[in-house]
Amino acid sequence: MAATAIAIVRSRKLFAAVMLSGIFSLIAAVFYVHLTAVDVAFTEAAVGAGISTLLFLATLALTHTSTEEPHKPVRPLPLLIVVVTGAVLIYGTLDMPAYGDPEAPPNTHVIPRYINESGTEVGVPNIVTSVLASYRGYDTLGETVVIFTAGIGVLVLLGRGRRRWRPGLKSKNEDDEPGRGAEA
């Protein structure tokens, strides 16, 4: 995974970077299965490797960016910032509970209640589903509204109102385009 990430940093071709990020998501999904988070792995595989790669490719096609960038040397100031931040974060992890520790604080507070009671209270075997839809229904409602809002935002940005913003454009582009009329 780290190797893919570094390949993304170093790749000069945008297309390669987008493809590598798809691979990165798939590897992350495999890693989630190893960490027994099957629901998350499922989502990551479908979303990260499927939809977001597709969207990135669509944007590449729309923006016509030059796929080959000139080689840029490693820039010292950002590198310094990154190294310092990373060192601070690693220093922070020294206080973290060890990996897989059942007594770690995140695993002891409200979780036993979910695990022990959800079977009788909600009657759904998949605890993730019962927490998602029932115990934390407000959260999920909020998330759904966020997705809805993002969708509306994209529609506003790229939908019907788009041509008004370029008054200098030829009228030919505005009227007889197949697809645009159907979208609007």
């Binding site: 939809i51 597709l54 969207l55 669509a58 944007t59 729309l62 997705i147 809805f148 993002a150 969708g151 994209v154 529609l155 790229l158 939908g159 582009n173 385009e177 697809g179 645009r180 159907a182 979208e183």
Partner: peptide, 13 residues
Amino acid sequence: TMIALFYVFSGQD
């Protein structure tokens, strides 16, 4: 939402 995103991105000239 996903289908709408796809429509919008592919509907661009």
